[in-house]
């Protein structure tokens, strides 16, 4: 292979151009992230006057001190943790409960049920009818509105089913059955221990979804004490957006406050997810592939 590369001038030029292009793309993706990180550790005045380019200017932890003293942010953080943990747990239980029976060839009714689930991928009641149903269920401004309406994703359930079908040897299940194990026993003793990769993928997909969600909270939560972090973030990052863009002046102190903590807030809200995902990377690539083969 190497000898061949050396033989062709065109190939060498191609490899160099290709590598350079990828490096440029990577820098374009990375730069805004680094900028945010640097700005969050810089003196607010330096950020406001546009002095921060790459590295932090006049490093300080001031912004983080303000962030971690802010009542709203702390409550939002706590709520988001609760929603994410409870929500992901419910998601996992429901997804497995749906996927496992569907993965069994001797489960009568699986075709009808698959159709029953698939229909919801193409048809939905839409925003307003869903809203009316949720109000009628008494979920409006209720903790569980952040958990229940999105309890299962059909797509994820089908990915999980595909994994159960393709990666767990049927012989193992049959052997356990002959040993007198019932279905639930097989699920817990054999299937789930062999499904760690797909469970990791699901935790990732669902968890990130909960962590980043704001729409459900925006339409169904009224009580500020129940707001997740993303809604608080929206207020801080985007509330004086108009004044910012039109060049109009809000109260100077207020603007300085918002300006100085913007980047720190972004970092605080994104770090948990960004730290977690590289560890799960090898799993979620697998997850996308299972989905791709299936779809």
């Amino acid at each position: 292979m190497n000898a061949r590369l050396k033989n062709s001038k065109g190939d060498i030029i191609f490899v160099i151009m290709n590598t350079m292009f990828l490096i440029i793309v990577t820098i374009i993706v990375l730069y805004p992230l680094i900028f945010v990180l640097s700005a969050s550790f810089s003196d607010p005045m330096m950020v406001m006057t546009g002095k921060v380019r790459f590295f932090p200017k006049e490093p300080t932890l001031q912004a983080y001190k303000i962030v971690f003293r802010n009542e709203d942010i702390l409550t939002g953080y706590k709520n988001t943790f609760l929603y994410t943990i409870t929500g992901t747990l419910v998601n996992l239980i429901m997804t497995i409960a749906g996927a496992y029976p569907l993965s069994r060839k001797d489960f009568y009714g699986r075709n009808v049920l698959t159709l029953f689930f698939t229909i919801t991928m193409f048809f939905s009641g839409g925003l307003i009818p869903t809203y009316l149903v949720i109000r009628q269920l008494g979920l409006y401004n209720n903790f569980w509105v952040m958990i229940l309406p999105g309890a299962v994703s059909v797509w994820n359930m089908f990915i999980m089913r595909a994994f159960f079908q393709n990666s767990i040897p049927v012989e193992l299940e049959e052997a356990a059955f002959i040993d007198g194990c019932n279905n639930i026993g097989i699920l817990f003793k054999i299937v789930l221990p062999l499904s760690v990769p797909i469970i990791a993928v699901m935790v990732m997909y669902y968890g990130v979804g909960h962590w980043n969600a704001y729409f459900t909270a925006l339409i169904y939560l009224k009580d500020r004490r129940k707001f997740p972090l993303q809604l608080i973030l929206r207020e801080i990052l985007l509330q004086n957006q108009m004044a910012e863009m039109t060049g109009g002046e809000t109260l100077v102190s207020q603007q300085l406050f918002a300006e100085s903590i913007k980047y720190a807030v972004i970092v605080v809200a994104s770090v948990p997810v960004l730290l977690l995902y590289p560890f799960l990377q090898k799993y979620f690539v697998k997850g996308v592939m299972v989905g791709a083969i299936k779809g």
């Binding site: 992230l33 950020v47 913007k262 807030v265 809200a269 990377q281």
Partner: peptide, 25 residues
């Protein structure tokens, strides 16, 4: 590196855009 931005929330993304595209600073 290129997968990373996918994990940012929409609020954070738009917040970053507003800040970085601001005409003032």
């Amino acid at each position: 590196i290129t997968y990373a931005p996918h994990f940012l929330s929409t609020v954070v993304l738009v917040g970053m855009m507003t800040a970085m595209l601001s005409p003032k600073n």
